[in-house]
Nucleic acid binder design. Sequence first.
DNA 1: ATGCCTGTCTGGGACAGA
Length: 259
Amino acid sequence: MKIATFNVNGITARLPRLLEWLGEAEPDVACLQELKTSDETFPAAALRDAGYSAVWHGQKGFNGVAILARGDDLVERRRGLPGDPDDTHSRYIEATTHGMVVGSIYLPNGNPQPGPKFAYKLAWFERLAAHAESLIESDQPVVLAGDYNVVATDEVGDIYSPRSYLNDALLQPETRSAYRSLLEQGWTDSIHHLHPGEPIYTYWDYFRKRFERDAGLRIDHLLLNAPAAARLRSAGVDKFLRAREKPSDHAPTWITLAD
DNA sequence: ATGCCTGTCTGGGACAGA
């Protein structure tokens, strides 16, 4: 069982890369973020032709999350996080498939900080933690996968160098503390668990030759509750896709679970 | 010291991203 998360940075512009990656990597489940398109314009037919059913929560121009699955039914169980009916951003969708609960997460970036965007990030993080608390004890495997917009530490496993990101919302103590609190509920950070300290990045800025220099960040994470973690076998990043024409600035990040 | 790129909506320039 292969489960992936991929911030596509615009599913319309990224459709060729997305389709070729689905064909090559063959994930059973794929969480997508930053669709940047409305519900009406989501390319469901092209994905269906590629063998994937989908649930999605779009938004015109920015945000937007989806879950794709093949080989089993995919049933949406929630769109949006509880706790703020006035939140208009499309940043969370949750479904059941293959006997698991899967959440696709696009946590707010939060820049510039301090400011209202950073406050929104921290508030959204609290709502995510409250919802995660309701999932952690599930007897079913639960996978919360997505772009958390958190660099967990200053260590080289998480970021090539913190120097040019010191002021960034992704590295702030409040952001890291929120992520740590979430993990302390009992979630396993898949890549960190299997590859502690290894520089395995999931995002590289488009400019300053950041990809060519492997000057990356690990901000896309797959969090597992105990029944899922017990089945964790491997984890990695499909860095090859970031090297192709018109790539996303993120690369697909994946785990495999024992069947 | 800095979105230096990129996508989207739009129709040229702003906004968002990290």
